[in-house]
């Protein structure tokens, strides 16, 4: 045990032989073993029902796997850990709070209202970083979809999390906004040195953002392939024209097709 934990010490997550079966009998995950290095960005991609959301829920500590175990920074994961912050497909800003108050919400819940108020300057800095500083006193209904997601990014980062769990964060945005948001998100993640796990339906997005893409297949959900993305950083608009980028997109697509065909035969 001691040797094992020293080995995984530089891993943010270490997942070993995780299986999950829901109470309804749905076999959602089978034999998942992955290791996520500190500061890495990992994508989970696959068809609906491949268990990628189940895996994300397990990593978030909201769901306990039926079998296997998960370690976070070398300790056994037991309930939602403090290092983790989430982002969902919808920005889910509370409409009765100003943008600034929304960003402060996680601090308010963790440390109380007074402590949160003292961190206003930090929240403002984040808003400035994503370019919506002028809207801090505005209400969510005055924001566009992209701006709302920027505010959600600030809310995710305000607690200075070491791990970011991103559940199709820009799935509801149009393609152009999404590309811009991806670039920004990647820059922020690399600046903060956080470890990120991303669930997505978009192959280009997974390649663009990640160090490793895990292709998954359905029934039962399992990881069929790990594709290392060796695109140089910083990535941006120029990356989209990189032949290697297109090549990797093809590789991921093939991996998904294989998984799909294999799943269809069994």
């Amino acid at each position: 045990m001691t040797t094992a934990s020293t080995v995984v010490n530089d891993a943010a997550y270490s997942v070993t032989d995780v299986r999950h079966t829901y109470g309804t009998g749905t076999h959602a995950l089978q034999d998942v073993s992955i290791e996520l290095p500190r500061g890495s960005v990992t994508s989970l991609i696959g068809p609906s029902g491949c268990g990628k959301s189940t895996l994300l829920n397990i990593l978030s500590g909201l769901l306990r796997p039926s079998e296997g175990h998960v370690e976070i920074f070398g300790r056994e994961l037991d309930g939602p850990p403090v290092e983790v912050s989430h982002m969902f497909q919808k920005a889910t800003l509370l409409p009765w709070r100003t943008v600034l108050e929304n960003v402060l919400l996680p601090l308010e819940l963790r440390d109380g209202k007074k402590a949160a108020r003292k961190q206003k300057s930090k929240a403002r800095e984040l808003l400035k970083m994503v370019g919506i500083a002028d809207f801090e006193a505005g209400y969510p209904h005055q924001l566009s979809g992209g701006m709302a997601q920027r505010a959600a990014i600030c809310r995710m980062l305000v607690t200075e999390p070491q791990i970011l769990l991103l559940d199709e964060p820009f799935g509801a945005l149009d393609e152009l906004t999404r590309e811009r948001m991806d670039t920004e998100l990647l820059r922020i993640v690399r600046d903060t040195g956080a470890t990120a796990v991303l669930v997505t339906h978009s192959i280009p997005e997974s390649v663009f953002l990640s160090d490793v893409v895990y292709a998954m297949s359905a029934r039962p959900g399992r990881i069929t392939r790990a594709i290392e993305v060796d695109l140089p950083h910083p990535r941006g608009e120029h990356t989209l024209a990189d032949p290697r980028y297109l090549e990797l997109i093809n590789t991921v697509r093939q991996a998904l097709d294989e998984g799909y065909r294999r799943g269809a035969h069994t």
């Binding site: 978030s60 939602p80 403090v82 989430h86 509370l94 919400l105 819940l109």
Partner: peptide
């Protein structure tokens, strides 16, 4: 709203906070 409840749970909010900062509104 299920999304808002999920958000609060992901932020480890207490039932008290979920009531006063979400349900009441």
């Amino acid at each position: 709203e299920p999304d808002e409840l999920k958000l609060f749970q992901s932020m480890k909010a207490s039932r008290w906070d979920i009531f006063w900062k979400l349900r009441v509104h």
